[in-house]
Amino acid sequence: MKKLLVVGLMMSGFVAFGQVKKDTLNKEYKLEIAPYKDNKTEKKQKPNPLSKKGQVFVFYGWNRGAFSNSDIHFTGNGYDFQLNNVQARDKPTKFGIVYIDPSWFTVTQYNFRIGYFIKDNLALVLGIDHMKYVMKQNQTVDFSGTISDPKYAAMVQNGQVNLADTEFLTFEHTDGLNYENLGLEKYKNLIHKKNIDLVWSYGAGIGVMFPKSNVRLFGNERSDRFHVAGMGTDLRSSLNLVFWKNWMIRAEAKAGYINMWDIKTTLNNKPDKARQDFVFGQVVAGVGYTFNTKKYN
């Protein structure tokens, strides 16, 4: 009887051990294949617009600008003088087909941007701000300095000069006040819905001033040529409404500082020049398109 009992216990232990081993192997087998199944079924989700490294956007819009008063210093053969607190305005084009006709796009006060996300939510942005700056003609300003030509020296009365007489000076950057800049912008998604996103951005930029200045001083032939005249810097912030992941409407506000120390005042290569610095403000609105340079399933 004892032998039968011992044999029975041994057989039951063997069966139990076999079942445990089988269960353990099944669990280990499941653990080994589970990640494989998950990897097969896992898909990369397309990121939100204006949020991930590798995304690109392009933008085209129009601006209105405002400028602080500035002191403009003129130097050349027979004159060295400064006009103080000169007022200026922008020069918007009347709304019409000129705003949508590509052959006339430089006539308007326009902005162009192309941005690339170098990190998540951080974009490197290359831009052109085509502003227009026009000195107000109907103003009297303080004058200091010397003019050797008696005709134009006589236009200075009691330390002031009336600029309404266009023979003394017309002064514009209307072809235009071109600020070619490179900036960094940080983006934050505020609203994320199925077919619409609202994205806020802020950043700063720096660049060169490449104006085509229209200056006519003392009746000389008008200076009218592109050249590097100085530098500018800015702070900017925008709201971007993105439809169907790609199409974008942008509204932007910008403030900055411009210093131009080499404004050409004569048409030829004479050393005549002017210099000025001022603060500017700008509001921009336009449309854009955003897309991904990386593939997403």
Results as ranks from 00 to 15, higher is better:
Lys2Glu: 14
Leu5Arg: 15
Val6Gln: 13
Leu9Met: 15
Ser12Arg: 15
Ala16His: 09
Phe17Val: 11
Asp23Gly: 03
Leu25Cys: 03
Asn26Ala: 13
Ile33Met: 13
Ala34Ile: 12
Tyr36Arg: 15
Lys37Thr: 01
Lys40Asn: 12
Glu42Pro: 04
Ser51Leu: 10
Phe57Ala: 01
Phe59Met: 06
Phe59Gly: 07
Asn63Tyr: 03
Phe67Asn: 08
Asn69Met: 11
Asn69Val: 03
His73Asn: 10
Tyr79Val: 07
Phe81His: 00
Val86Leu: 08
Ala88Gln: 05
Arg89Met: 11
Thr93Gly: 00
Thr93Asn: 07
Ile100Glu: 00
Phe105Gly: 04
Tyr116Ser: 01
Phe117Ile: 06
Lys119Ala: 14
Asn121Ile: 07
Leu122Thr: 08
Asp129Asn: 14
His130Ile: 04
His130Pro: 00
Met131Ile: 02
Val134Arg: 14
Thr140Gln: 10
Thr140Arg: 12
Thr140Asp: 03
Asp142Leu: 12
Gly145Trp: 04
Gly145His: 05
Asn158Val: 03
Asn158Tyr: 05
Gln160Tyr: 09
Asn162Glu: 09
Ala164Lys: 15
Phe168Gly: 01
Leu169Asp: 02
Glu172Leu: 03
Thr174Gln: 02
Gly176Tyr: 00
Leu177Glu: 07
Asn181Ala: 07
Asn181Met: 11
Gly183Val: 04
Glu185Asn: 11
Lys188Glu: 11
Leu198Asp: 01
Tyr202Arg: 13
Val208Ala: 15
Val208Gly: 13
Val208Asp: 03
Lys212Phe: 03
Asn214Cys: 05
Arg216Ile: 00
Phe218Arg: 09
Arg222Val: 08
Thr233Ser: 12
Arg236Gln: 14
Ser238Pro: 08
Leu239Thr: 00
Leu241Gly: 03
Val242Cys: 04
Phe243His: 01
Asn246Leu: 05
Ala253Arg: 13
Lys254Trp: 03
Lys254Thr: 06
Thr266Glu: 09
Asn268Ser: 09
Asn268Asp: 15
Asn268Met: 06
Asn269Asp: 13
Lys273Trp: 09
Lys273Ala: 04
Lys273Arg: 15
Ala274Ser: 11
Arg275Pro: 04
Asp277Gln: 13
Asp277Pro: 06
Phe280Arg: 04
Ala285Lys: 01
Ala285Trp: 05
Gly288Arg: 09
Tyr289Trp: 14
Asn292Tyr: 09
Lys295Phe: 08
Lys295Gly: 02
Asn297Cys: 08
